[in-house]
Amino acid sequence: MSILVFTLILLAGAFMAGMLGSLTGLGGGVVLIPLLTLVFHVDIRYAVGASLVASIANSSGAAAAYIKEGITNVRIGMFLEIATTTGAIVGALLAVYTPTHIVAILFGIVLLFSAVMTLRKKHEHAETEGSRLAGIMRLNSSYPVDGKQVDYKVRGVGGGYALMTVAGIVSGLLGIGSGALKVLAMDNIMRIPFKVSTTTSNFMIGVTAAASAVVYLQRGYIDPGIAFPVVLGVLAGAFSGSKLLVRMNTRKLRILFCIVIGSLALEMIYNGLTGKL
């Protein structure tokens, strides 16, 4: 296979990854890393670098749309970014000392977890009782529901911060946005309404990924020959996905996607255990 053919096939694959990522809200990386490693037999370190770049492209593109609607809570995002960026740098450092088959196994586990998370019941209720710390940090806010502003209060700031640090480490180590972990921290611990936590998580992914991507760039994990088809493909895919989203039955799509993701995850774990990755 020549570089030209490799590039074209990768471009098509990245397009699919971007489209699936945007339809399910999981981001491009979760499909991209298995695609690069299992199908193209690319070393997982190159895959991690490419996936980080794709996450930034995805997040920046989508965040612009969400901020416009006024759902994103910029204060919560900024406060928790202290946790995710420090975590991301720690993760990028850990990556040097982590054997690639361990990275593959960890990736599989996070992938399985993300698949389960997309099927879970969402926390849609706006809380009226918040914690004292949330008040001091001015995290409580309001968001639009059917044209009216609804107030919500925030709890579990310490626990949410701790889990966000873990999300940052995972993101830095595996090169994914770890949106599922971020949403878990904001939904289940901080009790933030689902719409707010999803968009705020997306807002944070770009900044978190940039913190570790800088380290990966200096280390040579981001290769131009892979980065170029991946960035263009994922962006075009995510854009088409967001247009399709309006017209599709997302419930059925999510279930289908979870099966696909689940089997990819098992294959990553299997290849990691047998030392093939």
């Binding site: 296979m1 020549s2 570089i3 030209l4 490799f6 590039t7 193209f40 037999h41 690319v42 070393d43 370190r45 190159y46 280390r219 040579g220 994990y221 981001i222 290769d223 131009p224 020959g225 892979i226």
Partner: peptide, 15 residues
């Protein structure tokens, strides 16, 4: 470089 062969199977790092 289009005519070359991709070599990403082993990690050497970007130039």
């Amino acid at each position: 470089h289009g005519g070359g062969t991709p070599a990403y199977h082993e990690f050497k790092g970007a130039p």
